[in-house]
Design a protein around this nucleic acid. Structure first.
Length: 276
DNA sequence: AAGCTCACCAACCGCGGTGAT
DNA sequence: AATCACCGCGGTTGGTGAGCT
């Protein structure tokens, strides 16, 4: 029945890692590679559970980790991605080479939150703190209606498109997927994406040409109203949606899907701070 | 110097999804 | 099909050092 336990908790160390443990873990992974965390501790001669080994490696020992302070550019990326996808630290980390989700999470909680609060911005909503909680312009589109994106484009140094939503009828479009393509948050030397835009409900990390290349490929799935919502006894009347921070969607890229061919989808950014 | 507060961050905990048995 | 461990993630905690009184 099921698998055998990965480790006996009674015989595992906890707390801070020693230099010796680090060395064992690093040398084991160097010769055997990552993965198989279940069997790793025993094989590496560590009295740790696999979960702990994985965490130690990913957050601290990995050779490609970038140490040191976050740059202003990284700050911006974190803020913008957070306003798009919320506390999806692993996804945000995927856009910042050398940074871990844990590091970004800590940095958010200790630095950026305060920074935003000082600016009078609610870090949870990315809106001015004084702003009333609901307004007609910043509410999510009504998801009971079909979403009909209207895209207008302007061409400056980058192409910008604003998408607005006409009243949608979700019941006619169960599992509606909005493809929003690539989000450019910085300047790319050359856009380079793999595949067709990534998995549903997940951000796909495009290949980096350079660290400033901050393209982001998204698909959104809007699901019909759920009948079990986070322990709520009442059926939820709201559809679930991946993105938070609704408002105005702004497309911007050098090769917007419309002039680059294919479905637009385009290159979509989010005007959460009013200056993308 | 001692005590206190605060900031930082490594590590732990618990949960949900997935897959092995 | 059912069970349960593994994996990965996000939230939280606790240890440590710096700065202040």
């Amino acid at each position: 029945m099921g698998r055998s336990p990965c480790c006996e908790k009674a015989h595992t160390n906890k707390g801070a890692w020693t230099k010796e443990e680090d060395n064992k873990l690093v040398s084991y992974i160097r010769s055997h590679g990552e993965g198989c965390w279940r069997s790793l501790p025993k094989a590496a001669g560590l009295l740790r559970c696999g979960k702990s080994c994985r965490l130690r490696w990913i957050n601290y020992l990995r050779p490609d980790l970038k140490r040191g302070n976050f740059t202003e550019e990284e700050d911006e990326v974190i803020i913008k991605l957070h306003s798009l996808i919320g506390n999806k630290w692993s996804l945000i980390a995927g856009r910042l080479p050398g940074r871990t989700d844990n590091e970004i999470k800590n940095y958010w909680n200790t630095h950026i939150r305060r920074k935003l609060l000082n600016k009078g911005i609610d870090p949870a909503t990315h809106r001015p703190i004084n702003e009333p909680p609901t307004t007609t312009t910043t509410n999510p589109p009504s998801l009971h209606d079909p979403i009909t994106p209207t895209i207008t484009t302007t061409t400056t140094t980058t192409t910008t498109a604003t998408i607005s939503f006409a009243p949608p009828k979700l019941e006619d479009n169960p599992g509606l997927i909005i493809k929003v393509g690539t989000i450019e948050l910085g300047k790319c030397k050359q856009e380079k994406l793999e595949g067709d835009g990534g998995k549903v409900g997940a951000l796909k990390v495009g290949q980096h040409e350079e660290t400033k290349c901050l393209d982001l490929s998204l698909e959104l799935r809007i699901s019909p109203p759920s009948h079990s919502h986070q322990g709520d006894k009442k059926p939820s009347t709201k559809p679930s949606i991946l993105m938070n921070g609704w408002g105005r969607l702004v497309c911007g890229s050098n090769n917007l899907g419309m002039n680059g061919g294919g479905e637009c989808v385009g290159v979509v950014g989010y005007d959460f701070l009013g200056h993308i």
